[in-house]
Write a protein that binds this DNA or RNA. Sequence first.
DNA 1: CTCAGTGCAAACCGTTTGCAAACTC
DNA 2: GAGTTTGCAAACGGTTTGCACTGAG
Lengths: 156, 156
Amino acid sequence: MKQAAIRRAFEEYLREKALKLTSQRGRIFDRAFATHDHFSAERLYEWLREEEGPSVSRATVYRTLGMLVEGNFLDSFDSGRGELLYEHVMGHRHHDHLVCIDCGRIEEFFDERIEEVQEEICNDHGFVLVDHDHKLRGYCRSCAKKRTREETPGSS
Amino acid sequence: MKQAAIRRAFEEYLREKALKLTSQRGRIFDRAFATHDHFSAERLYEWLREEEGPSVSRATVYRTLGMLVEGNFLDSFDSGRGELLYEHVMGHRHHDHLVCIDCGRIEEFFDERIEEVQEEICNDHGFVLVDHDHKLRGYCRSCAKKRTREETPGSS
DNA sequence: CTCAGTGCAAACCGTTTGCAAACTC
DNA sequence: GAGTTTGCAAACGGTTTGCACTGAG
């Protein structure tokens, strides 16, 4: 889906819900969809104050991000460091995350087998699965390499 | 492992690390191992002030819980509601959690297939897996039942 | 014109921290 | 006695909220 189409979907959503299209909402939406990275509310707020455009307060950033998650334009997940991270949903299928505990790098994974087992587990427990949070934490390729080097007395 | 043996392991740990056995650490440890439930730092703090014994400050509760996780006496995991939950480790093998998004009920699960796939995924990404966080969120049996009842015009 | 939405600053909530006093070893 | 550990209260960091003002519909 192209930017323009996504933006139209957003405006359509606002209309349906009788929400107003303010310049702040527009800026926040566009900025969120302009990145393919995961970002925190605070980082998005920084971006908005660095770049020019109608001013947007921190409160409005938080409120609008909440609304975008509600409307399924964004997904949020816990970074594990006490903040929520957001990523846009359009054109992405569901996936989970690998998080580097050294540099913070985030990669994505998806495995159908896990999805199936999750359903099975919920059935066994009588749970109705709504969503899940699956993070694998460890060292990414380059941090793992760095650590090996440091731990080995090696050359020098 | 019996309470007494666990307590001995704790004292041994303190000795090894040259940490002091204070009355506060003793109380916190004992109280944490006296429950089989998941609890937050704040809840543990409440328990300690309700029950009698040497007084323990909130700061000490947080500091000691951190130490107990460090020493592998407790596991902590993110409740998803902005607080950490703790559970004791002794006699429990690793497991993940099902969380009811209505009543907060927590059940545990373990599935070897998922553990294996996780390793495989990490290998594929060049990650060295250290640990993971896997929560299934949904409605527990009784909350699911309650919801069905409410949504169905039904009898009345 | 009206009411939803915004900005501000204060409030929140779980957690951490600096420092003087208290206690273990 | 020496040096940890504690308690207190203030600080923190991310997020939420009350309220008067602004602006979209």
